[in-house]
Nucleic acid binder design. Structure first.
Lengths: 255, 255
DNA sequence: CGCTATTTTGACAGCCGTCAATGAACGTGG
DNA sequence: CCACGTTCATTGACGGCTGTCAAAATAGCG
């Protein structure tokens, strides 16, 4: 149906990916400040550290969870890219969001609700694993942590509203330009990239499914953007050659 | 720029709509079960009742708040329809969601963040008014109420994800059919309508702006749906004549 | 070095947007 | 009660952005 998804043992339920011992203490975690726990002080970190069950690794294009699953674990993305998506009965796919290091995977799980979307990796990925129940209890007892989660949740909602505006009211070119800029901004905010060059593991099909387009049309637009020298994409690396121009294209509301 | 928005004194900041004394005790509120406070028991209701500052009324098409506003009040919609939307610099509009009685307006305000969308009424509206700060404090002290808000928030996110899938991957006809069915379902769940007839205050332009279409195209599709006898729309009243058929049209993924 | 996934290119069509104008509905004021 | 303006619904003509179909070229991978 879709690409990849090789019968790698990355699907929980078959061969669950093994839970590894640990990654190092949370206190020295380089991306902690980026996470929902970033607001926590000294003792909060210790309590979070105690909740952590360990970590897991997944290979690129592995399915982390499927729509309808009721997961008992919540992850914090430690390294790699992940995306949330919905699959329609006929195989169409809508990508809802891309998650980058520091993002929480499975916030809705706090309510033990069946997932209303699926989750898949784009790259090789490492996640920190928390027990959903334990984390929920912790949140109920720690207003600061709850605040962190709430703010994350609000930020997600804001991004979601922006994306909806893209899909409903912007041209294909503007959507693509905005996606590039958004991903670049997020990577910069995380200190993962500094300049105008960034890793870019998305296939054109992924871009299409995120922006409500077809891969062919994405290709046309990307071709144009490359040809006019606004950006270049080679071997999974994207370089924004003319940031201001790209911003102007992204701004462009008409067509 | 947009329709309506007559210089009625419905814009906070100019002539703020007067805060009215009260609507009756929360304990007897007929829509309380529908709200985020629905989960609360006896003493919880009393505490909520004490937080309520009163109520306000707005006329149809009045602007409740604008993008960028930092509001100090949170509303629960008591009666009428409201919608959230974003305005693009050139006047384009994307409606993000429709709110019905029982829905909370301004959940993000818990974080005293500037609103990233605007809010406008569709019909004459009555809202219950809460002080944002007081409500936030209350939530921090009452896990049950917080759970209620979190569940609401999760439900919103789920609806948002569905809508994004609509915009990205479904045809105009399917989107329109799904919007009708969704609104009908929500009104039924609230006991506001029983049969297949419902009030429908949306203009075709509103439908268009919610679904990423043009009013003209909405008209074409609505015309077809009426002509084939699936539904009828007269004087602000929508009747679903053939529910199964409408569902089938909504399901229709193809074109 | 063969297989598969992905990108690229071309031709064509259609859904939906744009432009323009008419008609219906409604409220307002004379 | 009727004239009148505004908003909304409706219709037609036309175009283009984007989708669909098909196939070749390229890249990735074991």
């Amino acid at each position: 149906m879709l690409q990849g998804e090789t019968a790698s043992a990355n699907v929980p339920g078959n061969g669950v990916n093994p839970l590894r011992a640990d990654l190092g203490p949370c206190g020295t975690c380089p991306i902690r400040a980026l996470t929902a726990y970033g607001v926590l002080g000294g003792t909060g970190i210790e309590r979070i550290a105690r909740l952590r069950k360990g970590f897991r690794t997944y290979r690129a294009r592995a399915v982390l969870a499927r729509e309808g699953d009721v997961l008992t674990e919540i992850y914090t993305l430690y390294e790699g890219w992940v995306f949330r998506f919905k699959l329609l009965p006929d195989g169409r796919r809508q990508i809802l969001s891309f998650l980058l290091p520091g993002d929480t995977i499975g916030f809705p799980l706090v309510y033990a609700t069946p997932l209303h979307f699926s989750i898949q990796t784009l790259t090789d990925v490492t996640v920190c694993v928390f027990d959903a129940r334990a984390l929920t209890d912790f949140l109920a007892s720690c207003p600061a942590a709850l605040l962190g989660f709430g703010e994350r949740s609000l930020r997600d909602a804001m991004a979601q509203d922006d994306l909806m505006t893209d899909l409903g009211r912007r041209s294909a070119t503007a959507r693509i330009a905005r996606l590039m800029l958004d991903l670049h901004r997020r990577l910069r905010a995380r200190g993962i990239v500094a300049g105008l060059t960034m890793p870019f593991p998305l296939r054109q099909r992924d871009i299409a499914d995120a922006l409500g387009l077809t891969p062919i049309h994405v290709n046309r637009v990307m071709g144009t953007l490359s040809k006019v020298g606004v950006l270049s994409l080679d071997a999974g690396t994207l370089t924004i050659l003319e940031p201001e121009r790209l911003e102007r294209i992204a701004m462009n509301l008409g067509h």
